[in-house]
Amino acid sequence: MLRRNSLLWNPLDDLQRQMGRLFDDLGFRVATELGGAATFPAINVWEDQQSVMIEAEVPGVRREDVEITTAGDELVIKGSRERHDGAERTYQRRERGVGEFSRVVTLPCRVDPEHVDATLRDGVLTVRLTKSPEALPRKITVRTN
C-alpha cells in the first residue's frame, strides 16, 4: 500500500494545539478570541479509504454565516458569530468569542473539488471531502520473474 502524506504542520499552530490538549486534559477548553485568531474553530481531522473528514465546533454560527471553500490542497472555513451588545447589557462574564473567523486547513491528500459535502448541526460543522482517484490506496502486484 502506498504511504499517505501526513498533514503539514505549522510549528506555531502545533504549539497552540499542544496547549489546547493541555487545557483539554484539565477539562477546560482553550479560550480563543474569534477576531482574526488562526485557531478558531478548533478542528479534528480523520480519514477513511475514500474520504477525508474535517469537523469543527462552531456553536452559535448559523448556516448562512459560514462559508467553505477549497483551493488546491487547502480548505478554508470562514464565518462569523453574532455580537449582542446593547446599552442596557452589562457582562458579568464573557468567555465566548464573537466576530469573524477564518481558518485554513491543509488537506492530507488531493481531493475532488466537485465532491465536498458540508453539514452544520447543533453547532458542529462536518465537511466530507472525497479523495481524488490518485490519492486512493492502490495495491501493487509484485511480479515474479
Partner: peptide
C-alpha cells in the same frame, strides 16, 4: 464557555455546548 449578561430585567446566561 459561558457569557453572563445582566439587563435591568434579567440575567442572561449563554453557554457553548456544540
Amino acid at each position: 464557555f459561558v457569557d453572563i449578561v445582566e439587563t435591568p430585567e434579567e440575567l442572561l446566561l449563554l453557554a457553548d455546548m456544540p
